[in-house]
Design a protein around this nucleic acid. Structure first.
Length: 216
DNA sequence: GCGACAG
DNA sequence: ATCTTGTCGC
């Protein structure tokens, strides 16, 4: 792998990403995540389909695949996009929007996992990470719904959002097909008492559960 | 050179 | 991400 080559690809992908506004109604959403087996190249990508805005689980899919690309900060999408595309293709219906566990535009080259996946699928995506990658920001207020902008080179690429009182905030940034403000609204509307939005939280549980079963 | 660094 | 039990606090 040639990182300079991949950097150029990221810049190209970022150009193809739309910053919204969201087009069309959202009635079905999906959440994706990947669980790994310590050290090995085994991965368990999971996708959960839920109704919107009701958030009722409609379908779950999990796969056991081999990962070929290593984890490198700034290049996560080259490791996970292939896995996520594979598991999403297993769903019986195509979601109107996908919640991703990772950054969207809050990336050095504006091409985080959510951007890459969204452009690749041609579907709107929201990035919701548990930790920051780049940008400057202040901690959001203590009340649920509080947000503070993530600034990168003078641009608001996302928001640090308080989804639960007394709990660390999440880092929300748009992937493809929507604005940063819409991304925040969607994440808050997808939370049900936990730090992470339901689609991502359930996909995480699904992937972890699959890995556990596979080992027993 | 030093520190940072999604999952 | 993963390795891991109990424990403090709302």
């Amino acid at each position: 792998m040639d990182l300079e080559e991949l950097k150029r690809l990221q810049l190209k992908l970022a150009t193809r990403a739309s910053s919204g506004p969201l087009r069309g109604p959202v009635r079905l959403v999906a959440g994706v995540d990947v669980a790994y087996v310590s050290g090995k190249n085994r991965a368990f990508p999971a996708a959960v389909l839920l109704s919107w805005p009701g958030l009722e689980v409609r379908e779950e899919q999990v796969l056991e695949l081999t990962v070929s690309f290593p984890y490198l900060p700034g290049y996560l999408s080259f490791r996970e996009v292939p896995l996520l595309v594979a598991v999403l293709s297993r769903l019986s219906r195509t979601p109107d929007l996908v919640f991703v566990d990772g950054q969207g535009r809050a990336h050095p080259r504006r091409c985080g996992l959510a951007v890459h996946l969204g452009v690749e699928l041609g579907l709107p995506t929201v990035g919701c990470a548990k930790k920051p990658l780049v940008g400057d920001f202040e901690p959001p207020g203590p009340e649920v719904g509080a947000r503070s902008p993530i600034l990168l080179e003078g641009e608001v690429v996302g928001y640090v959002v308080r989804t639960r009182t007394g709990v660390k905030p999440v880092y929300v940034s748009p992937g493809h097909g929507l604005s940063a403000d819409e991304a925040v609204d969607l994440v808050l509307a997808a939370c049900r008492g936990y730090r992470l939005p339901e689609p991502v939280r359930l996909a995480h549980l699904c992937a972890t559960r699959a890995r556990k079963c596979a080992r027993e």
